[in-house]
């Protein structure tokens, strides 16, 4: 699955947010392991650790025993707390061991896209709980009755605002007929970034329904623009679709009006046959939605309006819209 070149391309484009999450995991792991080591450590081990952190220049000149004594000692944790800490560490080690696999999921035949995304995020949510447990134990504030549930996987609905902002990207391989945008809408929050790698026949503009003023949405057939997903400071959806699909990018930072934010580079004809659960009407509706949003206004708004483009229907999106309307038998309104 990870050997798919498109998955590799997405992983590379999303390197920074992935690395940031990985660093977060590592930071938590390191602190927890150090704390655990402190619980069991004897004096020589403590001193050896202190000496190691000083580097060669310092270790040659600084008395490690006295230096170690200056370091704030870890508080003593009870057995229940230490057990919780170990379980939390297990979770974090499991995550760590998954490598890139943590950020890649696949919708197998018969499974639902929404369920796969939810399960991938729940697993990641487990990390947040585990991280908090390590901190509670270190601070001597772990109360089993209150905090035990933190060591279970945590569905996205339960994530805090900060966790939603710390969410790593998830890349999902999915068959075209299983792509349902409505399954994804509830994940548009924080810094959640979902990238679909789509195989086989697919609706031409499945992500059009996800466009909201603050959400970055990208459809591409060659992976172009995935780096912008990584850079966007907010929720983002992207799909790498088979050739022929609509391609567009909706970037919220580009303006207040939909036409300022949305750049459509290709709109195909609507399919003549249903794909998966999507009827031809639904698929046409998505294409029309896209064209509608991209259409520049004809009239410059009253004084104070943002610099709208000059009058005229020469804009590509307008032409597409006219064509689409003609297709659907609703022409004549422009």
């Amino acid at each position: 699955m990870q050997s798919d070149p498109r998955v590799q391309q997405a992983l590379a484009a999303l390197d920074r947010p992935i690395a940031e999450f990985r660093a977060l995991l590592e930071g938590a792991l390191r602190q927890a392991e150090l704390f655990l080591a402190e619980q069991q450590a004897d004096e020589p081990a403590r001193v050896a650790r202190a000496a190691a952190t000083l580097g060669q220049f310092g270790a040659a000149r600084i008395d490690a025993t006295r230096f170690a004594a200056l370091q704030p000692g870890a508080s003593r944790a009870d057995k229940t707390s230490l057990d919780a800490l170990r379980r939390a560490l297990d979770v974090l080690h499991q995550m760590h061991a998954r490598g890139d696999g943590l950020f890649v999921a696949e919708v197998v035949e018969g499974a639902k896209l929404g369920a796969v995304v939810e399960s991938a995020l729940s697993f990641i949510g487990w990390a947040f709980g585990a991280i908090i447990v390590t901190d509670l134990v270190r601070g001597g504030r772990y109360v089993p009755a209150e905090h035990e549930s933190l060591l279970d996987p945590l569905g996205f609905g339960g994530w805090s605002r900060s966790e939603r902002r710390a969410a790593p990207p998830v890349i999902v391989r999915v068959a075209g007929h299983a792509v349902r945008a409505t399954d994804l809408a509830s994940y548009a929050d924080g810094h959640v970034k979902l990238v679909l790698i789509v195989d086989g026949a697919c609706a031409p503009a499945p992500l059009a329904r996800l466009i909201t003023p603050g959400t970055f949405v990208l459809q591409t057939t060659d992976g172009a623009g995935l780096d912008r997903v990584a850079r966007f400071d907010g929720p983002a959806f992207a799909a790498v679709l088979p050739p022929g699909a609509a391609t567009f990018v909706h970037d919220p930072v580009l303006g207040r009006e939909p036409w300022q934010r949305l750049t459509v580079t290709h709109i195909p004809e609507a399919p003549k046959k249903a794909i998966g659960a999507m009827s031809t009407w639904q698929m046409l509706e998505e294409l029309k939605q896209l064209a509608d949003l991209a259409r520049t206004p004809f009239v410059v708004p009253a004084a104070g309006g943002a610099g709208a483009p000059a009058m005229g229907a020469s804009d590509a999106a307008d032409r597409i819209a006219s064509w689409l309307l003609a297709q659907s038998g609703l022409g004549g309104t422009t």
């Binding site: 660093a23 977060l24 930071g27 805090s160 900060s162």
Partner: peptide, 16 residues
């Protein structure tokens, strides 16, 4: 900074 990325997770904002 590796470890500071942890802070928002350790000190979560409550939704409500």
């Amino acid at each position: 900074t590796i470890t500071c990325g942890l802070l928002p997770v350790l000190e979560p904002e409550e939704q409500d």
